[in-house]
Write a protein that binds this DNA or RNA. Structure first.
Lengths: 111, 111
DNA sequence: ACAACATACAACCATTTGGTTGTATGTTGT
DNA sequence: ACAACATACAACCAAATGGTTGTATGTTGT
């Protein structure tokens, strides 16, 4: 092994969640303020269920959280998760700069 | 429309390229220094063709470039592309801060 | 109580993805 | 010249993705 396994799982989930433009758009909305799933769904030309699944993907990745308010689920974006993605990119930039002490710790050593 | 269409295509490609751990690992290697496709392939427990496809995905996303050297293709990571992803995340953080002037310009106005 | 609303989730489908093997093409060193 | 090497790419396959419709469950206001 090398690169902490669960952290790679997190990275997979985060980048995958961000790889869809509808999900990025939803994320922008919920970072700007709370929105119910229904309110979000109203913004897109697709079924409620499709939007709800996108919200679920973002939630599983930790990019948004939901809280119940009566019969609504209010979703808010988690800026800390966004920052954690940014720091993964910073790490990549550090690799480029040659600034990583133990670069082999970041690279998969198959053998 | 809203959010520049081609820039969304770029974002799709970049985040998708980053959403696979093998590709992130390849990107780390080529950010640290040039590597031939064969050298990269030697590091993973999968076929040469599989690794070559991962390299192609990274290349299409603009995260790496190749230059020919004799019979080898040497791949190097493009740190500017990594930074462009970082700035997309910064923009998300700006949305969260409420710092975006015309927030509606960033959000899809379907109607 | 109950109709309308908000959400969740299952089942299904077409397309994409990540892998495979096989084949073709270009480059090099002897 | 030619064998070995480096790469590219097509064809194929199973699994995952992004969408659909339909159904079930909880919540609210009258």
């Amino acid at each position: 092994m090398s690169v902490n396994e669960t952290s790679e799982d997190r990275a997979d989930a985060l980048f995958h969640a961000l790889s869809d433009r509808t999900r990025r758009d939803i994320l922008r909305r919920v970072l700007a303020g709370e929105h119910s799933v229904t309110a979000l769904a109203a913004s897109y030309d697709m079924s409620f269920a499709a939007v709800q699944k996108h919200v679920a993907v973002l939630e599983r990745a930790g990019l948004l959280t939901k809280r119940r308010n009566g019969r609504e689920q209010l979703a808010s974006g988690d800026v800390a998760a966004v920052r954690s993605v940014a720091s993964m990119l910073d790490e990549l930039e550090d690799v480029w700069r040659g600034r990583i002490d133990r670069i082999d710790a970041l690279l998969t050593e198959e053998t």
